[in-house]
């Protein structure tokens, strides 16, 4: 055992300082959601909508409507676009508190006051800390793989005062992955019922946000909409660990939301 103590000491600090200034988010090279340059869309083109496996893109007359809540960043639309209107990007911080903020419409109804008003109010209750109960409601294990990474020495989630808790009775936030299969619906609702109030719910990953690739069918649901009241939406297939951290900090009002009306602020 002393060997390990010595080894640990020799290794030094492995944790990133991110999101503090100068910290590495660890996502170099990661492809995120495609960027849309709607002005480049050729008239009556629907190539991207035709290849999208999750119906995230809808072809309109002059351009397209894009729902990032359905996007699994598979990059097929980028490859299919003849005009470069869709471009690969490293944009992954897609956590929003309103589902509609993930939808890109050609002419957004900009309402600054409302955008400012959307606040979870969680900070008033919990200060800066948070305890999370995770429920896998039928994921592919991709989201779990990235959630488990949050406690590795690089991301070291505890440094931010955020913890996973075994019991829903100690939890402030229910973090749900997966499209909510029929067999997992009752255990999911039972877990939610066991949580003390006030409580928050996060739809994590595109499956939980909108159903994802396996949506519907005889056994698969279409995410949390209509199942539980969702306070935080994070699409991604899977969201990377930094995206998870950013999302949790958005909920805690410690980081600004980057996406409004389907437009990503850089």
């Amino acid at each position: 055992m002393p060997l390990w103590t010595l080894f640990g000491l020799k290794q030094g600090k492995a944790s990133t300082a991110w999101p503090a200034e100068g910290g590495d988010d660890g996502q170099a090279g990661v492809l995120g959601m495609p960027r849309l340059h709607a002005e480049r869309c050729p008239p009556e083109c629907s190539d991207c909508a035709a290849v999208c496996p999750t119906r995230a893109i809808e072809a309109l007359d002059q351009c397209i409507a894009l729902d990032y809540g359905r996007c699994i960043h598979c990059q097929l639309c980028v490859e299919a676009c003849p005009a470069g209107a869709l471009e690969s990007s490293g944009d992954w911080a897609y956590a929003v508190t309103k589902r509609d903020d993930l939808k890109y419409a050609p002419a957004p109804a900009v309402d600054e006051t409302q955008a400012q008003a959307v606040r979870s109010g969680i900070r008033r209750v919990f200060g800066r800390s948070l305890h999370i109960r995770h429920v896998d409601a039928g994921s592919c294990n991709g989201c779990e793989s990235e959630l488990q990474a949050l406690n590795n020495p690089f991301y070291n989630l505890h440094r931010l005062g955020i913890f996973f808790t075994p019991s829903p009775r100690f939890a402030d936030l229910l973090l749900v992955t997966g499209p909510v299969t029929h067999a997992m619906k009752a255990p999911l609702l039972a877990t939610y019922e066991q949580m003390p109030q006030p409580r928050w719910v996060m739809a994590a990953g595109t499956c939980a946000v909108s159903g994802g690739v396996a949506e519907d069918g005889y056994a698969c649901g279409r995410g949390l909409e209509g199942v539980l009241p969702v306070d935080l939406w994070l699409p991604g297939c899977p969201p990377n660990p930094a995206a998870f951290i950013h999302a949790l900090l958005v909920l805690l009002e410690r980081q600004p939301q980057r996406v409004r009306e389907g437009r990503y602020e850089r």
Partner: peptide
């Protein structure tokens, strides 16, 4: 099988090149 999503059935009627997107999401790791 609490997580049974019916992935085999979800592949049906898809174009062969679309199936790979589903296959990658049967088991993420």
């Amino acid at each position: 099988f609490f997580k049974h999503r019916g992935m085999e059935k979800r592949c049906e009627a898809k174009r062969p090149e679309q199936g790979v997107i589903l296959a990658e999401r049967v088991s993420g790791v």
